[in-house]
């Protein structure tokens, strides 16, 4: 029996904190609730692994983080992406091969950058653009960019090569930029 921890106190002490941790990362209330519940049950099952070296909260948070990564791992594409694949934004042949197609080329944004970053509406719009990324790219984007996990850690967790990760993140950025250009600028 592990020392110094009583599972019956966990919910009152930690459920809100864990719920916040989860909801920031999965952006889905029901899923966040389920993950917290699973975390408590997994903690109970693995009481022996709680050594009392870390605090209960740190220990439970580590379990929750694992669950979040597993959630994203299931959603990640196994397809190898390469920069060589055609992208309609760029010319596919001729002397200007791989240069911007005129209609897709970035236009000048009619926005004042600093002011936008202060704007609540813009933040909500940006959040919506991120939420609309295809699921198969979103997991990489969330873990690397939002969660600030190290690239090699993301690759390891999601079974991706680093070049594949870069191409996926790049596609996500291209799409985010398109989203803002179409909907905001």
């Amino acid at each position: 029996m592990a020392k110094n921890t009583d599972p019956n106190t966990w919910v009152d002490a930690y459920s809100d904190l864990l719920f916040r941790y989860a909801i920031i990362r999965v952006n889905d209330e029901q899923l966040a609730e389920d993950l917290v519940q699973e975390t408590f049950l997994a903690g109970l099952k693995n009481l022996n692994s709680f050594q009392g070296k870390s605090t209960e909260l740190t220990w439970l948070t580590a379990i929750l983080k694992r669950k979040i990564i597993d959630h994203y791992r299931k959603k990640t594409t196994r397809k190898e992406y390469s920069l060589d694949e055609p992208d309609e934004r760029f010319d596919s042949n001729g002397g200007m091969k791989d240069h911007w197609v005129k209609d897709s080329a970035p236009s000048a944004w009619n926005i004042e950058a600093d002011k936008q970053l202060e704007s609540k509406e813009f933040m909500q719009f940006l959040q919506a653009c991120i939420a609309h990324l295809p699921e198969k790219w979103a997991s990489c984007f969330v873990l690397r960019v939002m969660e600030e996990m190290k690239s090699d850690e993301v690759c390891k967790e999601l079974d991706l090569t680093s070049s594949n990760l870069w191409v996926i993140l790049h596609r996500a950025r291209l799409q985010l930029r398109d989203c803002i250009e179409k909907g905001w600028s």
């Binding site: 809100d16 916040r20 920031i24 970035p106 940006l126 959040q127 939002m146 985010l176 803002i180």
Partner: peptide, 26 residues
């Protein structure tokens, strides 16, 4: 320039979401 701007926006969005989340509870 636009990608730099988006990156800045994401940093700000992240701290905004974190701040907001302090009022969320079960």
């Amino acid at each position: 320039n636009q990608i730099d701007f988006i990156t800045k926006g994401i940093v700000r969005l992240r701290s905004r979401i974190e701040k907001q989340s302090t009022s969320i509870s079960l």
